[in-house]
Amino acid sequence: MHLTLHVWRQASPDQPGRLVEYAAPDISPDMSFLEMLDVVNERLIQRGEEPVAFDHDCREGICGSCGLMINGSAHGPMKLTTACQLHMRSFKDGDAIWIEPWRAKAFPVVKDLVVDRSAFDRIIQAGGYISAATGTPQDANALPIPKPDADWAMDNAACIGCGACVAACPNASASLFTAAKVTHLGALPQGQPERERRALAMVAQMDEEGFGGCTLHGECQEACPKGISIDAIMQLNRDYIRASATKVEVAEWTGAA
């Protein structure tokens, strides 16, 4: 296949970026999208041009490192597929492909297609966990959990933290990411003691990071490579409202009070 790429190049966070056109001849349909970029990069290096920087690691759709806007879609045209698992057979000979980084205020560009997603880690820090210090627990089977609850928890725990939901959202909201964690932990009995505080603190952090609010466009669930449902956001909203009603102060939770 012969393709034409338009790739976002940006040398550093404080320099302006632009789209640069590259010819990509002789691409095999069996290559993954990132393998295609590898080939393009090898050719760039041979010509003495700096290769395109992009985040990637496991290349099997689970680490969440890769994240590219491909022709305006987060992770490209195939549903339930990360960029690393997208194969070139999804494109046609002669296609032009536009490749850009995630665009969101809370995800500043580091270089080319690499963005800073540390805001996600800070949302987890705000409350995306169950406080169970090592060595304290009881026997694992002492706490039966109905299978549907465990399955629902797992559906939401499948989030890979790639940021596609933010990139796809017209408001650049991190609601689906935040909601997936709140819903995962809230579906389990172990997660109950911290449930309300968790919702308040994580939402507060999400706002703090500069993500937009959720207006239920639903683009996030369309873009999510792990199929996380917008139902999680309903759950987040319920938890948030209930927590607000019980007047648990975020300050009290974070220890700032």
Binding site: P137, P144, A157, L185
Partner: peptide, 22 residues
Amino acid sequence: VDIIDQCVAQGVPFAREYGGLL
């Protein structure tokens, strides 16, 4: 054996039987 206890307490959603056990 302690690892499984620890992970369940952290909320790791291990597969379960219909009776709710692991």
